[in-house]
Design a protein around this nucleic acid. Structure first.
Lengths: 192, 192
DNA sequence: GTCTTCATGTAAACGGTTACATGATTAC
DNA sequence: GTAATCATGTAACCGTTTACATGAAGAC
């Protein structure tokens, strides 16, 4: 059992869903947390069904549209999931392409680097706004604040990711100022 | 060309290295930024050599030890690397197993969750200390502060990761207090 | 006598991405 | 008439992990 399989169980622990729904939720709604493609999704659903952690609940047909295979989690699946979440996790290696580029920033003219940092900040600001908007949507729901509802967990993830985006933005600012300061000093020395 | 190949070029842009050295630097020294296994490393080195982005500089033999194949970056490789770092990057999806577990925190007793959060905070504190120590090592070097040296880029990555660890720790604290507050209120109501 | 380090490499399997396929409908 | 949405699925490939192999020296 790998993380993506537990992610699917996590979704079904909240409500019965079709494969299509799960993909949407992972890629869009729960976007801060994982990603999945069709090719992974359908075989993995098959595996989970074979292992009796999920089962087909219904097949919905809405007019001309393709049939929707709705899955639900089984008792065994819920048990498996609960076991997993209680087990300790290592901190994962963050593989961020930008960091590798940053490792080479000394090869770049400071002026270019300042622009790249400004761009980068904008990207993280966008994400922050996205999360903030999702948070606003959650805050008006009546269960908001109740720690025993799924909503609480979703809000917790959003909070975590908002903290990440804010710290990234702060870093962009600091780096930008550092480089700018270095440039200013250089032009001063050149004048003298 | 994928990120790991550019990561190897990045290392060779600083100094000639053997495959073994590169693995050590990626997995240990530059731990905050990527990871590589033998199976990926040696075929990828072969590819880079074939593409003429790196070349064999020397074969060192130190007594009984296996021969070290020292590689260096070519002009073409440096050019390719510079092109890449100037090109814009998307923000990568952060795949963190813990986040998926967090998505299920509503299934867990708050007491257990409080413990998990305390553990998690400890993990990130350890990483923060690790980065802080590396930073101290860099700070005493004479080139420190000069934005045109590799050291500056390394320090920038450490700064970024330290910000990440700090924001994670802060979030752990906030989440812990929220849960604790909710528990206290519950026991109060129970007494009345 | 077993474990670790140095240094190269390979085999097999799993995880994940990109692209394609179907077929009806709605939107521009 | 082209593109997007809904909903399932497959083929081929690339990226990554785990495990194994060699062989000599030094540490416990």
């Amino acid at each position: 059992m790998n993380t993506i399989q537990y992610a699917l169980l996590s979704l079904l622990a909240r409500e019965p869903l079709s494969g299509y729904d799960m993909k949407q939720q992972i890629n869009l709604k729960i976007n801060p947390f994982w990603k999945i493609s069709n090719n992974q999704l359908y075989p993995v659903l098959g595996k989970l069904e074979k292992a009796c952690f999920i089962q087909l609940k219904a097949i919905e047909q809405d007019g001309y549209r393709p049939a929707r295979k709705i899955y639900e989690i089984t008792d065994a699946g819920l048990e498996k999931l609960k076991e997993w979440i209680a087990a300790p996790s290592e901190t994962d290696v963050i593989r961020d392409e930008f960091t590798v580029k940053l490792f080479n920033s000394w090869l770049l003219e400071p002026e270019k680097m300042i622009n790249i940092l400004a761009d980068r900040k904008r990207q993280h600001e966008e994400k922050l706004l996205l999360y903030a908007n999702k948070m606003k949507e959650l805050a008006v729901r009546p269960e908001y604040g109740d720690i025993e509802t799924p909503l609480f967990s979703t809000a917790a993830i959003l909070n975590l990711r908002m903290g990440y985006e804010r710290s990234y933005m702060e870093w962009c600012d600091n780096m930008g100022m550092l480089l700018q300061g270095s440039l200013d000093q250089k032009s001063k020395t050149a004048k003298l």
